[in-house]
Amino acid sequence: MPRHEPGRFDDLLSEADVERLVCSTAIRYPAFRLVRQGRQLDVGDYTGTVSWRPPFTSTADVRRVLAEWEAGATIVLQALHVNWHPLAVFCRLLEDALGHAVQVNAYYTPRGSQGFAVHHDTHDVLVLQVAGEKRWLLYDPLLELPLKHQRYSSTLGEHGEPTDDLVLRAGDTLYLPRGWLHQAETSATDSLHLTIGITPYTWIDAAKGALSECENELSLRRGVDTGGADGLAGLLAEKLDPERVEHRRRRRFLDSRRPIREDGLSQLRALERLDTETLLERRETVIADLEQRADGLALVFEGREVRFPAHAEAELEACFEREGAFRASELPGDLDDEGRLVLVRRLVREGFLRAISG
């Protein structure tokens, strides 16, 4: 989508941010790497060791990184959804909207250069052009909907003529479906762009999940030389019911979301001052489900099940569903003030709620 709006994405990651990270923070591989003309440079050519006990290895050698960038190498900042807070929050909110895992890398390419040759990605991609401009050539897929391990290789054949030839400028966005071949190069300006990867949950994943649930079936634990697996087809058909598939997909998604708590330490101190009139809010970076259990409720998020008794159901559901700030005293239900404080303090400690200062 063309916008030509310089600065539109600077709150996520700016050129100044990249320069600071690379030139003054002792960033270490694999948080960054250098590539040129489709080839990854040897890590030892641009990193060194910072003396400490134990030493910091594979740390950016600023002089060599700058020399390689000036010579045409692209600086790749990797897994920014893990180690750069603005993009961690952005990706989590996008995950909440899409229901799929999201990742992000940044590519800072000097003018007149190319980082990667023609290739495809094994996930859907959103490109956000942060600064400068970049020319993109797009080609029809050679392998439709590749899986994660099915990376691009020249053995797939020769690509055809470009289906699109376009230039992204600051503020522009581009969507690349999984498997579409592409390459990009800079012109007379340096270029910084983000690639937001959206990982699909495929029927291969669903089938693997269904099989993993069958491990308690004795017939499937026998060796294949003992005969057929009795009832396997019917068992798999049952476990591949759309509702069960969606439940497994959702649970795997929830279990794999890491905590994002920029105020985790200060929230522990806020517990000391928390009372029924303290303003609270649901943490925006938490994606969770509230599930019924035989003895109460379970809040499922970040790889955990946090259990609560049935008599706190009304208050817990209100905390789960609330939008905006609220106070424990405002919650519906039959808990007294002490019970409400026990509930919200636990939710703050677990990282589901946060106390609002001021």
Rank of each mutant, 00 (worst) to 15 (best):
P177V: 08
A106L: 06
G160M: 08
Q183K: 07
A131C: 01
H123Y: 12
I204H: 07
H120Q: 02
S113L: 00
W203S: 11
P177K: 01
T173M: 15
T189F: 08
G209V: 01
S187Q: 07
A106S: 00
D165F: 06
E158S: 10
A206D: 02
E185A: 14
E133W: 05
T189A: 15
Q150V: 05
D140I: 04
L142H: 02
L156Q: 04
L211E: 02
P110W: 10
D121L: 08
K208I: 07
T186L: 11
T202F: 12
L176T: 09
L145A: 12
E161D: 15
T155H: 09
T199G: 04
L211C: 07
D190C: 04
G160Q: 07
R135C: 06
A188Q: 08
Q114T: 11
W136C: 09
E144K: 10
Y175C: 04
T163I: 12
N105D: 15
E213C: 00
A131W: 14
H123S: 08
E144W: 10
A210H: 09
L192E: 15
A206Q: 01
R178H: 06
Y107Q: 09
L147P: 00
V127H: 11
G157K: 08
Q129H: 04
Y152H: 13
P146G: 03
G197V: 02
L137S: 13
I204P: 00
Y107I: 07
L128Q: 15
T122G: 01
S191F: 01
P200L: 12
H193L: 14
S212E: 10
L174D: 13
V130C: 15
L143F: 04
D140L: 06
G160R: 05
